[in-house]
Design a protein around this nucleic acid. Sequence first.
DNA 1: GTCCAATTTTACAAGAGTGAAACAATATTG
DNA 2: CAATATTGTTTCACTCTTGTAAAATTGGAC
Lengths: 226, 226
Amino acid sequence: MDNTTTVLLVDDEQDILDILRFNFASGGFGVETATSAEQALAKDLSGIGLIILDVMLGGMSGLKMAMLLKDNPATADIPIIFLTAKNAREDIIDGLRIGVDDYVTKPFSVQELLLRAQAVLRRGHRQAERSPGQGGLVLDKRGKQLLVDGKAVPLTRTEFLILELLMAHPGAVYSRDQLLDYAWPDGVIVIGRTVDVGITRLRKKLAPYAHCIVTRPGHGYCYEEA
Amino acid sequence: MDNTTTVLLVDDEQDILDILRFNFASGGFGVETATSAEQALAKDLSGIGLIILDVMLGGMSGLKMAMLLKDNPATADIPIIFLTAKNAREDIIDGLRIGVDDYVTKPFSVQELLLRAQAVLRRGHRQAERSPGQGGLVLDKRGKQLLVDGKAVPLTRTEFLILELLMAHPGAVYSRDQLLDYAWPDGVIVIGRTVDVGITRLRKKLAPYAHCIVTRPGHGYCYEEA
DNA sequence: GTCCAATTTTACAAGAGTGAAACAATATTG
DNA sequence: CAATATTGTTTCACTCTTGTAAAATTGGAC
């Protein structure tokens, strides 16, 4: 991808670590590994460009580790991809909430993981380039409202949840199913088109920034900063 | 923010103190630190514009320290932000009760803490600016009453607690559950609609400022300054 | 250009959420 | 103990939100 990004692989299963090491190395990445969160945190992370992190670890959980990294300004910008069990929706949601960049469910295809990794890195570069531009959209989580160029626009519960997820990861595409999982209460069954309507209603409230919610036909929606 | 507000950081973990010192200094604050409540209280606090205070301290607790400060007229006006454990609801409630200005739960993002700090200071300035006008709504915590355009209106216990929480953070939305937690004794089980009635009764007493308690359908209630 | 699939928009009805009033139950006061 | 104040529940009218369906639009393939 670019001049040897170094990826840190954290998983407590040595087998998986070996497979990943081989594939990422073949993919042109520099590779470091750790078998626990503690071991990973003890490393010098300054040269790390991406972390692949198993959520289920002995000792400190991957979630906890991610939280620590995202709270520390020195490491907050290192993208993280979660490896989670297929049905661990809780972990995924918590992860996205604290700022994890993407996730892949086990069992996963290594090829898919590599693609995700490259996508996350591309995304990071785009963001870094336009970091100075302090955009006009701010989600006020405490007030459950949106600040559009400083003007407060109240959001309904559903609208707030959709936008919270989308804005948490600019550039990441979320499928309708993912949005349903996140923004709709458990057990509620609605048809997929319902999400579309929610998006439409949101766009109206985004006023001049409606285009920031981008439709990706066949995939879902994503938020792009102004 | 403005001509070097000095912030006093109180935490018994040197690591956290270092991180905070660095970030607040970068943010343009003057910084002083203390590793215990006793050490903090021994300082000359006259130049301090804001205190960031860990609740869990060896020796005197942060809660106790805050109580002392708020009881002393010389220091009662210094805003305080609590650092509490994620699930320490008790501490948060007690803190708000004695007049703490805001709180952030650990583990916290430093960025969020800085934003909260700036918000608290802004709030203080706004209040200071319009103090001569003596306008509108003032909650008299000592007298457990409300001053509506200077006229005293007695509040019942429940009414006082609801309003105290809402007014502590203008613009923040509190769910019915949060209000129940704060304003109703532990163990008491009441239905959610009870809160609504409490709000209705409060609005009546707010007289011409009823609209300051804003309903956010699906979320809860929040206080907006006049 | 036409066709097709996907998406957007609009309108409407059902349902959930809310405000006010009245009443019952409980606590407080004299 | 009686009188009063406070608080919790219920009810009804009303508003806001939300899911669905149908029509309009878009974008791309051929």
